[in-house]
C-alpha cells in the first residue's frame, strides 16, 4: 500500500512541473497561464506540453506566459506571440491553412478509403 501511495504521488508530481515560485498570486491569471501551458508543446521533449515539462525552455516559456499575463495581454495574444517565434511545431493543434490542410484531411481520406476496402464486397 505504502508503495502504491508513493507511486501515485510521483505520478501527480510528474503531472505538473510548475514550481511554487513560478505561480501567480492572482488565481484567475494562474488558471489562464495553465490553460496556455497545456496548449503549447515543449520544443525539446516533443510530446509534452510546457506545463508538464521540466526542460529549461519549458520553464522559460511558462515564465514569459506569466509575465505577459501580468502585462495585461490576452490568452490569444500570448499564444500568437509564441507561435510567431517557434512556428506551428509549438502548437498541439496546428492551424488550418493550405499547407497544413493535408494534416487534417488525410486521416478522413484514409478512414473512408479503409471503410471502402473493408465493405466493398
Amino acid at each position: 500500500m505504502k508503495y502504491i501511495i508513493i507511486f501515485m504521488s510521483l505520478f501527480f508530481l510528474q503531472a505538473n512541473s510548475i514550481e511554487p515560485d513560478e505561480m501567480l498570486e492572482d488565481t484567475r491569471l494562474e488558471k489562464i497561464a495553465r490553460e496556455i501551458g497545456k496548449e503549447l508543446r515543449c520544443l525539446v521533449c516533443q510530446n509534452e506540453d510546457i506545463q508538464n515539462s521540466n526542460a529549461d525552455i519549458a520553464k522559460d516559456l511558462r515564465k514569459i506566459v506569466r509575465k505577459k499575463l501580468l502585462n495585461g495581454e490576452s490568452k490569444k495574444q500570448i499564444i500568437d506571440y509564441i507561435h510567431s517565434r517557434y512556428g506551428d511545431f509549438v502548437l498541439f493543434s496546428p492551424p488550418i491553412r493550405i499547407d497544413t490542410f493535408g494534416l487534417w484531411l488525410l486521416p478522413i481520406i484514409f478512414f473512408f478509403f479503409l471503410t471502402f476496402l473493408i465493405f466493398r464486397k
Binding site: D60, K67, Y86
Partner: peptide
C-alpha cells in the same frame, strides 16, 4: 540574464 531575448529570437537550445 532572464532568457527573454532568446525566446524572442525563437531559440530553444
Amino acid at each position: 540574464l532572464e532568457g527573454d531575448v532568446s525566446i524572442d529570437w525563437g531559440v530553444y537550445g
